[in-house]
Design a protein around this nucleic acid. Structure first.
Length: 864
RNA sequence: GCCGGCGUGGUGAAAUUGGUAGACACGUUAGACUCAAAAUCUAAUGGAAGUAAUUCCAUGUCGGUUCGAUUCCGACCGCCGGUACCA
């Protein structure tokens, strides 16, 4: 998974504010190193499949693994990782057996592009980057079971990626196709529709062109219905479910056969043009047909008189990129072919046009146009003066197409019916006469599963002149990626592997004759489609996962990652998982039971009047919320933007840890706001949590004793336990932290600290700030880690106050307050409120219409 | 355009089975400590008026429901993310 932003050293506004963490005596650096190496050598967080834990006391908590880019970790990564780490530590202390692994999505283009530039083998670059990532991730003190670490580029791992591909192939879900694909001339590779952003390559920004190349495709469309249906039972955000549904884009309608009129060209006798429509009920309103320029019938339908115009149109649309084709959307273009079709319901002869607003890849690549009831058809008809026939009453078809429901007119046997009834009727009518069928279409296309690249999994496939496509036997896996001399693509669209003669030429596993290996490699998504299963049993050499272990841990109870993977990664992984489920290889229908998208960490940026952005180092703060550009003095507005190198607002986590410590970093990222929303980084905000931890440290230096806890502090402790327990379980870390701040602000005022109270607080704080709390726990006289201590419990009676403040309102406005016992009854509240001097003043002379009392809250007096 | 999300102090934010708007934190101001500064500690801090008690205004805008709306409903405005003629 690729990072969105790149980390780079950045001098923060911290110095301007004069705050420097090293001025304090809290020795975070020593403590953090000490405990990190303790956890590592003691293997504190190793997960075992211990049957003593019942199923409901096991938790699989997963982070989306990173692509190990050369830029290292940026501040966005640790946000999700910290959240899951806090949750895991919390669960362990609550008696759960927790599986919490980390690994690397280590095949991918950047390492290969670097190889092209420098000649360094991607394996070397990747290993180096992973080393950096591991040490960076470890510096946060996350409680991963590092023994389960995996990398998708290692042969031990991709052996099983290849093995799963063979299963897909055996099931008929992988096939070859010669298809026009998006080709990036800069990456020299084919790319999926999903990787084309606004007509440009998502990775390099190059305009994408179309090319015909032989490709491997995965039949994800065969699972479209189940991918929609099974969303139902998942504990995922509704927005993600909706996006996946929209992406799959199921629509129901009918395929309708239109006979081609052969009167001008006898060769067309018996030829049929099939269209897909969601509105077969409007068939009587079809006044023309439109085919995609790429439609196979275009050539034969075109009359000699129209040939030059049609050829030219086909040529221009082929030259257009997808971007241009869609950009010109508002202004419809098209050409008449000269051919005619016959409307099956009434025998009318209607002209056939071609236009690039019809996509060859959707439906049948041709439509019947009903301009009265489809806006696109309406625009097209208006431009080319084609007739418009109203077949549903209710709209004004002179101004726009009417797409709502209404009674049918001009439609013979459908007249008077509503939309749904007419659809059902016409479909049966068509089916009886074999002129059409009910049909379902999806926006989802099959998954283009090959890349003409080096740094990916080789396909376990051989092409034999006599046997055709032959799979490599399972016992010969992995098919190892060979070393090569040059990483440059061949330019004709083949992968660099095609140049290694001794690798490409092989013998056919079936007939032993001369054969050639498949030279495409798998896309980056392949490895990330099943990594969560391999963590369960990463060393297994006999199977991709042991079934018993799989059943022990699956499904993933909580999956946390960025929303950029909402559609693709999550859809692809669900697809593979369902295939494995159908093969009886995994026990759950879905891989990820609960999903959370963490928000993006953004940054402040400064905008000129003309909406251009100024790099942070060019900005001067002249007052509260007022900023000017240093060089020009132009006033600037502070806005929120993504971190970017050019704006110089990228934060490097290493710098922050060095200056403030990992515990501060962890708590700050959680304190910024709710996990799910995006929030701007502010280093000055970080000082607040640093002060909090420093205050914890100083409180820990006070004498510990068994001195009685003042009653109000004891109550505060129990309220804090309650709030932190509830909020941590609900992943509402920001409010839990705020409650712990409230507690420490009181506790540090005491001269002596009660040991039991202090230990309870340390355990509450431990998931958030594991290093400082381990150290303070040890100072309390314990000689082992507190990672598996029992979570503190609160006494419910101590979490509520005996007296509450009752608010008195007059006509809904706050006018007075009084203290009352928590259980004061409504009548007494009313009497007391009305007796208050202030209220008597305000209600004097007025008529009291009504008095409302809400126990424990307020009294509202309505007067006129 | 469509789909999804979000609009609260100078800043990050809190509070919703409808019941004290602004917890906690940053910043700012004043004070203590200090030769001085930093750090630390104490206090104040939504806006306006008033010596004060207190009053008025305030959760994007307008309207509705209600004794009472940041919370529910309707319309609109703005921002962010996704998507692109899917017949």
């Amino acid at each position: 998974m690729k990072p969105n932003a790149n980390s780079r050293r950045f001098l923060t506004l911290r110095r301007a504010h004069g705050y420097h963490a090293s001025m304090s005596k809290y020795p975070f650096s020593d403590i953090e190193q000490k405990w990190q190496s303790h956890w590592e050598t003691a293997k504190t967080f190793r997960a075992k499949e211990d049957s003593a834990f019942p199923k409901n006391k096991r938790a699989y908590v997963l982070d989306m693994f990173p692509y190990p880019s050369g830029d290292g970790l940026h501040v966005g990564h640790p946000e999700g990782y910290t959240a899951t780490d806090i949750y895991c530590r919390f669960l362990r202390m609550n008696g759960y057996n927790v599986l919490h692994p980390m690994g690397f999505d280590s095949f991918g283009l950047p390492a290969e592009n670097f190889a092209i530039k420098t000649g360094t083998h991607p394996r070397i670059t990747t290993a180096k980057n992973i080393k950096t990532f591991v040490s960076q991730i470890k510096s946060f003190g996350f409680s991963y079971d590092w023994d389960r670490n995996l990398t998708t580029h290692s042969p031990e791992y991709y052996k099983w990626t290849q093995w799963i591909f063979l299963k897909l192939y055996e099931k008929g879900l992988a096939y070859e196709a010669e298809a026009p694909i998006n080709f990036c001339s800069s990456c020299k590779t084919g790319i999926a529709n999903e990787e084309v952003k606004e007509g440009r390559c998502e990775r390099c920004g190059q305009l994408v062109e179309r090319r015909n190349l032989r490709q491997w495709m995965l039949k994800i469309t065969a699972y479209a219905d189940r991918l929609i249906e099974d969303l139902e039972d998942l504990d995922w955000p509704d927005s993600v479910k909706t996006m996946q549904k929209n992406w799959i884009g199921k629509s129901e309608g009918a395929n309708v056969m239109f006979r081609i009129d052969p009167s001008d060209n006898p060769e067309l006798e018996g030829e049929v043009l099939e269209v897909y429509t969601t509105r077969p009920d409007t068939l009587f309103g079809a006044t023309y047909m439109v085919m995609a320029p790429e439609h196979p019938l275009v050539d034969r339908l075109t009359t000699p008189a129209q040939k030059s115009a049609v050829d030219e149109y086909i040529h221009t649309s082929a030259m257009k990129s997808d971007l241009e084709r869609t950009d010109l959307a508002k202004d419809k273009t098209g050409v008449f072919t000269g051919g005619y079709a016959v409307n099956p319901v009434n025998g009318e002869k209607i002209p056939i046009w071609i236009s690039d607003y019809i996509l060859i890849s959707y439906g049948t690549g041709a439509i019947m146009a009903v301009p009265a009831h489809d806006q696109r058809d309406w625009e097209f008809a208006r431009k080319f003066n084609l007739p418009v026939i109203e077949v549903l009453k209710g709209g004004d078809i002179d101004t726009e197409a009417f797409t709502e429901d209404g009674p049918h007119v001009n439609s013979s046997f459908l007249d008077g019916m509503g939309k749904q009834e007419a659809i059902d009727t016409i479909i049966s009518w068509l089916e009886e006469r074999e002129l059409g069928t009910k049909a379902v279409n999806y926006k989802l296309r099959d998954w283009l599963f090959s890349r003409q690249r080096y740094w990916g999994e080789p396909f376990p496939i051989v092409h034999c002149p006599s046997c055709g496509v032959v799979t490599i036997p399972e016992n010969e896996l992995p098919l190892v990626l060979p070393d090569i001399e040059s990483y440059e693509p061949t330019g004709n669209g083949e992968s660099p592997l095609a140049r290694i003669e001794e690798w490409v030429n092989c013998s056919c596993p079936k007939c032993g004759g001369k054969a050639r290996r498949e030279t495409n490699t798998m896309p980056n998504w392949a490895g990330s489609c099943w990594y969560y299963l391999r963590y369960i049993d990463p060393q297994n050499t006999n199977a991709f996962v042991d079934p018993e272990k799989e059943q022990y841990w699956m499904p993933v109870n909580l999956y946390v990652g960025g929303s950029e993977h909402t559609v693709l990664h999550l859809l692809y992984a669900r697809f593979w998982h369902k295939v494995l489920y159908d093969l009886g290889l995994v026990s759950t229908r879905e891989p990820f039971q609960r999903l959370i998208n963490q928000g993006m960490i953004t940054s402040f940026a400064y905008e000129r009047q003309n909406k251009t952005l100024v790099p942070v180092d060019e900005v001067e703060e002249t007052g509260p919320d007022s900023f000017v550009e240093k060089s020009t003095g132009e006033p600037l507005t502070r806005v929120i933007a993504k971190m970017s190198k050019s704006l110089k607002n990228v934060i490097n986590p290493d710098d922050i840890i060095k200056e403030f410590g990992a515990d501060s970093f962890r708590i700050y990222e959680m304190f910024m706001g709710p996990l799910q929303v995006s929030k701007p980084w502010s280093t000055s905000g970080l000082t607040g949590v640093f002060r909090f931890l420093d205050r914890v440290w100083r409180t820990g230096e006070k004498p510990l004793s068994d001195a009685p806890v003042p009653p109000e502090v004891e109550k505060l402790l129990h309220k804090t336990i309650k709030k932190v327990t509830e909020d941590t379980g609900a992943l509402e870390f920001n409010t839990a932290i705020s409650q712990m701040m409230i507690f420490i602000n009181e506790a540090y005022k005491l001269n002596e600290i009660n040991k039991d109270m202090w230990e309870a607080f340390l355990l509450l704080l431990n998931p958030y700030a594991p290093h400082i709390t381990e150290e303070l726990w040890q100072k309390c006289g314990h000689d082992s880690s507190c990672a598996y201590e029992s979570w503190p419990v609160y006494t419910p009676e101590l979490t509520v106050d005996d007296t509450v403040t009752i608010v008195v309102q007059v006509n809904g406005k706050l006018r007075a307050k009084f203290e009352a016992p928590r259980d004061m009854q409504q009548e007494e509240m009313k009497t007391h409120a009305l007796s208050l001097e202030r209220i008597q003043e305000l209600t004097e002379g007025a008529q009291i219409r009504k008095v409302i009392a809400v126990p424990g809250k307020l009294v509202n007096i309505v007067v006129t």
